[in-house]
Design a protein around this nucleic acid. Structure first.
Lengths: 206, 206
DNA sequence: TAGTGTGAATATCTTCACAGCT
DNA sequence: AGCTGTGAAGATATTCACACTA
């Protein structure tokens, strides 16, 4: 595994660059300089160049980077060339909002199914994605070979659902529950902790 | 400003420690060791001790940290002793879910008002918080002296609303829009970019 | 003995600055 | 002339390891 020494934050930035590049494609730009793209992404030019250099040489000295090709390479690096199916667990308030939220689809993720203890309730919230009983989770996950899950359940049950997801073959969890999940080390957990983000702001604001 | 050399991530961790401490308070624990608390928070003991040491000495050698007092000091450091009012801008799908979401209240934040171009629609989504027309934003912000805002509007209009928030005295923005906001340097922006988090996972999962 | 507080060592990440293409 | 690619320097953050103390 050669990507061992790529800064984790660089991966985040890659996503941001990709988004900026998509805008440039729409504008019909053919090339972009590191300084222009860096500005759009809110980073320093040198950092952008270094981030890209981890994956190869894509630019032309004196000219810049080819917009289209660079976007394609980032998609490739991020594993976004063929799109990953995703499931969502816990279609409560936040969960069902995420299901209606267009942001994931816009970035090319397909939420193929949702699971909840009370599927009826979720459906009544206007969710389009099929919502199944949480009991069917394992069989459906395995049938579809799903590896990415969004977890939006209350704190106290988050760990046990995470365990079940992992056992069913999920290796990436986007966790909205305000809980530190324990998972085997081959599983990646990404925490989005809304209250924590607000709290963090409040430190800088007073 | 002496907190200049405190790792930014340490502030995040402080919030996590605080959450764990609250649980310990409920359980009636009087003291906790760095290793126990670190385990609960998902960090190494040495890191926990270092994080706390930035703010003073709170532990007793051979014994551990007093749960209650430590929680109080963290609240103090995070500026959470008196609670900050927060507003939410953009009560669409995601925004109104956040308004119904109990997580903020549970952590002691009060969302005092929401603003949207179409307040009726938001109210019809079952939002309890008063929703005002986006036009009234400035006057109400200034009246209440609000300094924290949650921004959940579509990308294209995010920057202009951020500008208005800043002009009206907001100094901390929790930004859910998939856009890099430009703000004066005294303003802190905290980005929560849902699609980006998923994309990040997909890199590690393939 | 159990467990904090911390300097020093290490690891990680960012920025500089410039050689080298086009 | 303009802009990339990158080694080296600098800045930050984490971890170790142990002196110290209740």
């Amino acid at each position: 595994m050669e990507r061992i020494d790529i800064p984790k934050k660089a991966i985040y930035r890659l996503s941001i660059y990709h988004r900026c590049l998509k805008r440039l494609v729409e504008l019909g730009e053919e090339t972009v300089s590191s300084s222009a793209l860096a500005k759009a992404a809110g980073v320093k030019p040198a950092q952008l160049r270094k981030d890209l250099a981890y994956f190869g040489q894509f630019g032309t000295r004196g000219l810049g980077y080819p917009v289209e090709a660079l976007a394609a390479m980032i998609r490739d690096v991020l594993g976004r060339e063929r799109l990953q199916p995703v499931v969502l667990v816990g279609a409560g308030n936040l969960g069902s909002a995420l299901l209606r939220y267009q942001g994931f689809q816009k970035e090319g993720f397909e939420v193929v199914a949702a699971f909840d203890a009370d599927p009826e309730a979720a459906v009544s919230r206007g969710v389009q994605v099929p919502v199944f009983s949480e009991k069917e989770m394992e069989e459906r996950l395995q049938a579809d070979g799903v590896r990415l899950a969004i977890l939006c359940v209350p704190g106290p049950i988050a760990q046990s659902l995470a365990n079940r997801l992992v056992a069913a073959g999920v290796t990436g969890i986007l966790n909205f529950s305000p809980v530190v999940l324990e998972v085997p080390e081959e599983v990646v957990v990404n925490n989005v902790d809304l209250a924590l983000e607000l709290e963090h702001l409040s430190f800088f604001v007073r």
